[in-house]
Computed example of a mutant assay.
Amino acid sequence: MKGLILNTIRVRDEDLIVRILTKNEVLTLYRFYGARHSYINVGFFIDFVVEESYKTTIKRLRNVTQIPFSFLFEREKVIYFNEYIRLLNAHFIDVSRVDSFYYESLYKLAKTLHERDVKRAVIEHYVSLLEKEGRLHRDKICFLCEKKIENKIALARSFLPAHEKCIYSAGFDEEKIDTLFNEKKTILFSDEEIEKLWKILNLGI
């Protein structure tokens, strides 16, 4: 079985509770510590085996092998990718069954990160996620006052569109938002604007 590690919690010395996103499930498994065990962390894609346990209700994580990606050799990209995965872990709280979109699209993202700007790539993935979940608002209606946005479009948490005056935040050009929301491309945004989008994303998925 293959999966993406969403979170690890240390318990009893070096043992771990591990949350893993697979193609159709979010699993919570127990991993016993051992000198021969490979190192695992949030954001790792792994191949593994799930083993039943007769002593506890939680199943065991066994035979872990990390799936290598080129971007893992670039520290900054790993840091920002892991930030996104931690946000996704919170998004999947109390979730056990998931659509294959999540694992497959994140795997595709990881395969291309070595040749892309990590923040731009993650933001584009996030917009795809919002669209998949039916939460991408292209109507240009302010979520606070419910009136049409005529000029620059400000974005709140979850990239909800708003008037600049309603959320006291500078907006983005309409053309840039259209390109991002419709084509899933950040090409029109400056690096400074990407930093602003990243901060909005980090408010929560």
Rank of each mutant, 00 (worst) to 15 (best):
I5H: 00
N7G: 12
N7D: 14
I9S: 11
R12N: 15
D13S: 07
R19C: 01
E25S: 00
V26Q: 08
T28L: 05
L29Q: 05
F32Q: 13
Y33D: 11
Y39K: 14
I40K: 08
N41G: 13
V42E: 13
F45C: 01
F45I: 07
F48S: 09
V50R: 12
I58K: 12
K59M: 05
K59H: 08
L61M: 15
N63A: 04
V64P: 08
Q66D: 07
Q66Y: 07
P68E: 08
K77M: 06
K77R: 12
Y80W: 09
E83S: 08
I93F: 14
D94P: 04
S96M: 11
S96R: 15
S96A: 05
V98Y: 06
Y103W: 09
E104L: 14
K108V: 03
K108L: 11
L109H: 04
K111N: 09
K111W: 03
E115Q: 07
D117I: 10
V118N: 04
V118E: 09
K119Y: 00
R120W: 01
H125F: 15
Y126G: 04
V127L: 14
S128V: 00
L130P: 10
G134L: 11
C145L: 08
E146S: 15
K148M: 14
N151G: 10
A154C: 14
A154G: 11
P161D: 06
H163Y: 07
G171D: 11
F172A: 05
E175C: 06
K176T: 12
I177R: 06
D178M: 08
D178F: 12
N182E: 14
I187M: 05
L188M: 11
K196C: 07
K196G: 00
W198T: 09
L201T: 02
L203I: 06
G204P: 07
